[in-house]
Structures are given as structure tokens and as C-alpha cells.
């Protein structure tokens, strides 16, 4: 079933960029260029996700969000903002936002976050195993095998791989991986993720499948399904 997204963004360039991106991924995208229009649309339609700009004409993004939440609307909300600061992030989440991204951003990352929020509304039986190609992860026993060979992983490596396996064939940014593994939200400006990924990849290489984790320059990492 096609998912519906409402995009409220006053910057025409960003609006087109995001709307085109989601349309290409088979989402149905409605858009509004000011807060008032956004609120009206959000109240009268059933969306799977709202993407809100933080600064909007007529009605500020956070105010819109508060108004929506007060009226009992529980649609997942992702806030976009040019202000890359923790306090803004906190404010956004307190107003009822479910996730937060700062501009400028890569569409790939927005897509991953959006999918996560959209799927949250769909009740799925909790998976106990994840399988991507020859890679198999048992969540309860934390056993990971590649072509029946067991991989011995450190806890952080396990968490990283789990995140990658949940989004196979998708480019995952370092920031996303960082947030998946650590409870600290900041731009690490460090190669800590790269170091972990390198270790993980080395373990794959020992089994002859180093190519499973692909580095995407300027974007992040991708777990290939191909195998």
C-alpha cells in the first residue's frame, strides 16, 4: 500500500528535492509551504508521516506540532531544521516530534529515518532472526553466521551489523550508525564508526566476503544483499 507523507517546508528547493525523492520511492507526497496550511492538511487527512520544517511562515513548526498533538493526532513526525543544536533537538522532541534532522542532509539518511517512523506504526511480530543473503543474525542468542560460519562479534559490532541488516542495500550515514550504537547524539567528527566497520569488514574478509559492507564515499556504508 502506498504510504502518504505530508511535507511542510517553505524553502522551494528543499521541498522539491525531498518531494521528488519520496515520490521516486513510491510515496504519495502532499506538500504545504506554510504552517497554517500544513496544520489544516494534517488535521483533515490521514498521513503515515509528517515532515516538518522547524522555521515556517505563519505557524512555527514546533507550534504546529504541539497543536497537532494536543488535538490527539499521533502521526509520526520528523522535524527538519537548520539549527543543528542539541537544545533545538530537545525542544523538537518534547513538542512531540519523533525524530529530528538538521539541514543540510543527505536524502538517503532522511529516507532511512522516515521509513523507520512509518514502519513504527505498522504492528509487526517482533522478529527474532534477520537474514540478508548468506548472513544470518539470531537476536535472542546474538549468534551471527555467514554461510553457516559463525562470526565472533564485539557488542558494538553486533549493534552496527544489526542496524545495517535491518536496512539492507541502503546507504546508511555515519551519523545514523553512531546513533544506533551510542546513546550520545552529536556529530562525532571522528572515525570511530569507520574503525568499527573496518573491524567488522575484516571479520567478513576472513570468510572471503569483505565486499559485503560497501563504503559509499561522501555518504556512509551499505550492506549488499547480492551475496
Amino acid at each position: 500500500m502506498t504510504k502518504r507523507i505530508l511535507l511542510v517546508e517553505d524553502d522551494a528547493t528543499t521541498l522539491k528535492y525531498v518531494a521528488d525523492g519520496f515520490t521516486a520511492q513510491n510515496y504519495q507526497v502532499d506538500s504545504a509551504t506554510d504552517g497554517q496550511e500544513g496544520l489544516t492538511l494534517a488535521k483533515h487527512n490521514q498521513y503515515d508521516l509528517l515532515i516538518l520544517d522547524r522555521m515556517l511562515p505563519k505557524l512555527d513548526g514546533l507550534t504546529l506540532l504541539s497543536a497537532l498533538r494536543t488535538s490527539g493526532n499521533k502521526t509520526p513526525v520528523l522535524i527538519l531544521s537548520a539549527l543543528s543544536h542539541v537544545d533545538e533537538r530537545v525542544k523538537g522532541l518534547r513538542a512531540g516530534g519523533d525524530d529530528y534532522m538538521t539541514k543540510p542532509f543527505a536524502f538517503a539518511e532522511l529516507l532511512v529515518r522516515a521509513e523507520k517512523l512509518v514502519q513504527r506504526n505498522v504492528i509487526e511480530p517482533a522478529a527474532t532472526d534477520i537474514e540478508v543473503g548468506g548472513l544470518k543474525m539470531e537476536l535472542l542468542t546474538r549468534k551471527v553466521t555467514l554461510d553457516e560460519n559463525e562470526l565472533m562479534l564485539q557488542p558494538k559490532e553486533f549493534q552496527l551489523l544489526k542496524y545495517l541488516m535491518e536496512h539492507p542495500n541502503q546507504v546508511i550515514s555515519r551519523t545514523l550508525l553512531f546513533e544506533a550504537v551510542w546513546d550520545y547524539h552529536f556529530d562525532p567528527r571522528t572515525n570511530v564508526i569507520d574503525v568499527h566497520i573496518a573491524k567488522l569488514r575484516r571479520k567478513f574478509e576472513e570468510l572471503g566476503h569483505g565486499e559485503l559492507i560497501e563504503t559509499v564515499r561522501g555518504a556512509g556504508y551499505r550492506l549488499c544483499k547480492g551475496h
Binding site: 543543528s84 543544536h85 538538521t102 543540510p104 556529530d187 567528527r189 559509499v216 564515499r217 561522501g218
Partner: peptide, 20 residues
């Protein structure tokens, strides 16, 4: 273009750091 993106991200990162 990925290489250029990296370079651009670095510039943006500097601006972000400056602002915060």
C-alpha cells in the same frame, strides 16, 4: 561527485561548528 560531497560536507561542518 561523492568526493566533492565529502569536501562540501567538510565546509558545512565548519559552518555548523562555528554557529554552535
Amino acid at each position: 561527485s561523492a568526493e566533492l560531497l565529502e569536501e562540501l560536507d567538510h565546509c558545512l561542518g565548519t559552518f555548523d561548528a562555528m554557529l554552535s
